[in-house]
Simulated assay, not measured.
Amino acid sequence: MTHIRKAVFPVAGMGTRFLPATKSIPKEMLTLIDRPLIQYAVDEARAAGIEEFIFVSAAGKCALEDYFDTAALLEERLRAKGKTDALAALDRTRMPEGALTILRQAQPLGLGHAVRQARRLIGDEPFAVLLPDDVIAGETGALSQMVAAHRLTGGHMVATMDVARAETASYGVLDVARQDGRLAQARGLVEKPDPARAPSTLAVVGRYILQPSIFDRLADLTPGAGGELQLTDAINADVVDTGVTGYRFAGERFDCGSVAGFVQATVAFALARGDLAAGVRCIVDGDRPAGRIAA
């Protein structure tokens, strides 16, 4: 199978759930511990072998571009002060020359429309799509797991997880033809179904590996759920010709597009760090950390 070299990151959303913070800060730049959300997605993509990064952005998101640019003055000052750890932390924010392309989505017409913007840059090869709102923690990155599985399956592949039936109305959901371990062959997908009519509880989350045939389907899309051009609908239209496999990844997914999910991720990631776990656990367990000022 062809190596997956390119990835699309839809980052044009307004982040209204996080207002007023997102009035001036792109949602993808909100910091989870000490890295912005976009960095987690880029790191996961790099670990999976991605070489070219395509951001589909919008007006007012220059901070994303600045973040992955060289900060010459900052680096010079850190170097002069011998702050080697801080300099090392900046390494992951660097992109090789020509590796990052930023496109502008002029209108917020949905995820399918955002992915469609990348057609000329993707060309005739399979590619990945990562939604930075979905942060997935695991020993091996979710996209790395999918790339390995995709070598065996081909076609379109979507990351999946089991959800409560009542939650299916918030997701694209697989209509499963057959299941083999972590792989589920789909006969179709339904975007945000009525829970009573959901074909399964296997929900699609923000990682995809797509064949270039998806762009022909995206070109023919009409508005779907929410009046938007849904990527799920385009994938569903390609089930017969290209095939669609759901991959149930190993790891824990956090919906950082919601305030509650962002807080949950912050606590979980802090508890996983040796330098933060003890202090955070005191708060979680209801004990007062040393030095806390009483009300």
Rank of each mutant, 00 (worst) to 15 (best):
A89K: 11
D134G: 09
R120V: 03
M95C: 07
F127M: 03
A198M: 05
D241A: 15
L121R: 12
V158R: 03
A88N: 08
R178A: 05
V176T: 06
G181Q: 04
T222F: 15
L64Y: 10
A196H: 03
L202T: 06
A89S: 14
T222W: 12
L130F: 13
F127P: 00
A295S: 13
V205A: 00
R207E: 07
A278E: 14
A159C: 14
L73G: 02
T222P: 01
E228F: 05
R253T: 08
A184R: 04
V42Q: 04
V8T: 01
A48T: 03
L229G: 07
Q211D: 14
Y67S: 03
G224S: 07
D43V: 02
L73P: 00
G49S: 10
K6C: 02
E28H: 08
L32T: 01
S258K: 10
S57Q: 07
L32K: 01
A198K: 00
A89L: 14
L231Q: 00
V163K: 01
P126W: 13
A237F: 08
M95T: 07
I38P: 03
P193C: 00
M95I: 09
Q185C: 00
A169V: 07
C62S: 14
A234D: 02
V135M: 05
D85A: 15
G155W: 14
L78P: 10
G226D: 13
A137P: 00
L189G: 02
L231V: 04
A272K: 02
C62M: 15
P132Y: 12
A137H: 07
L221G: 03
G49H: 09
F127G: 01
T2E: 03
I122Q: 05
I293W: 09
A184H: 02
A278W: 10
R94P: 09
G98S: 10
A86F: 08
S144F: 01
P108D: 15
A149D: 06
P126M: 07
V56S: 09
R151S: 10
S24G: 03
K6H: 03
L37A: 07
L19R: 08
R281C: 02
V204M: 06
P199W: 11
V284M: 01
D66V: 10
L73V: 13
V205T: 06
Q145R: 11
A137T: 09
E252K: 12
G49E: 07
C62Q: 14
L90Q: 12
L131E: 05
A268D: 07
F127V: 02
G138N: 04
V239A: 15
A270V: 03
M1Q: 09
V204E: 01
P199Q: 11
A71W: 15
G82I: 10
D180G: 04
G257W: 08
